[in-house]
Amino acid sequence: MYLETVSEEEARGDIADVYAAERGDMGAVMNATRSLSARPDLLVPVDRLLNQLRDGFSLGLEAFRMITLVVAKHVPSSYCSHVYFRGLSRFVGREQALAIQRDHHTAGLTDREVAMLDYAQQIAIDASRIAPADIERLRALGFSDLNIADIAYAAAYRCFLSRYFDAVGAEAEPGFLDDDPAVRAQLAVGKS
């Protein structure tokens, strides 16, 4: 980590609460969360936004994790690729998560899932190129405007946080790194 952050021992108040919740959920406080403590007044709102977006995601947690993994590849963010690969693998299995990360067009997904991930990928690459036709494609596949907004929020939020994590030197914890060196290499899309 390039910046000074609040350690678990030093954490007080809201930061201590966020750290304790993460330790309870994940068994440890992630470097990503610690990196947010460099600006203590923003840690809670940023964490709350992630939780609200993820927990209330209109397309479900599996879709949220697929979007995040695809966006992380195109940011590019090795940290978020490793973390969200691990999370998505619990839903769809390791091989399917690898296939989605490699190329969601050839991963055996539905047309609806491919369109969702195409939209998220375009947000990561260059959102200024999104046009009304892209939104109409999603609507034609049954996505509501709420669903489309959720995809955009999830993709844009991941771009924001992934870039922040790289900018302050947060690194993936060893527990998120796959045992297979070839998989680790596939997920190492940005800063290692």
Rank of each mutant, 00 (worst) to 15 (best):
A140K: 11
A99D: 03
A20G: 07
D134Y: 03
A63P: 04
Y19R: 11
R90W: 06
V168Y: 05
Y157W: 15
N51H: 15
P181Q: 01
F165Y: 09
E113N: 06
R102G: 10
S78W: 03
V183D: 05
L161G: 12
R139G: 03
E62H: 06
D126L: 09
L161A: 12
G27I: 10
L161T: 13
L187H: 12
A16E: 11
D103G: 05
E95V: 06
F57E: 01
R34S: 10
R94T: 10
V114C: 05
N51K: 14
D134S: 10
Y84L: 07
D17G: 13
S37Q: 05
T106K: 11
G175H: 14
I151K: 02
D134W: 09
L98V: 00
A170V: 11
P181E: 06
L88Q: 03
V71A: 01
E9A: 15
R129V: 10
E9K: 10
Q101S: 13
H74Y: 12
E8K: 12
P76I: 00
Q96R: 14
V189W: 08
V29L: 07
S192G: 14
A133G: 09
I123M: 02
I15H: 08
S81Q: 00
M30P: 09
G108D: 07
L109A: 05
R86Y: 15
C159Q: 10
A28K: 13
A11C: 08
S81I: 02
A133K: 14
Y2A: 14
I15L: 08
F176I: 15
A16D: 10
S77T: 12
I15D: 02
V183G: 07
Y19V: 01
V71K: 04
A115V: 04
S35M: 07
I135L: 12
P181V: 08
K191E: 15
Y164S: 00
D178F: 06
V114H: 09
F165C: 04
T5D: 08
I100T: 11
A16S: 06
H74A: 10
D47Q: 12
Q122D: 07
E136G: 09
L42T: 13
E10V: 01
H74P: 04
T33A: 03
A72L: 01
S35T: 09
S77P: 04
H104C: 01
F64P: 00
A72R: 05
M30R: 12
N147I: 04
Q52T: 13
G24N: 15
R163S: 03
R48L: 14
A188H: 15
H104G: 09
Y164P: 06
S78H: 01
Y79M: 03
R184Y: 10
M30H: 13
Q122G: 06
L138F: 04
V18N: 01
M116H: 05
V29P: 05
D178N: 11
V71D: 09
Y157N: 13
G169M: 00
I148E: 04
R65N: 14
Q121I: 00
D118F: 03
A72Q: 01
A115R: 00
S77E: 03
D180G: 00
N31C: 07
R158Y: 15
A115L: 05
R23N: 08
A131M: 12
I67N: 00
G169R: 07
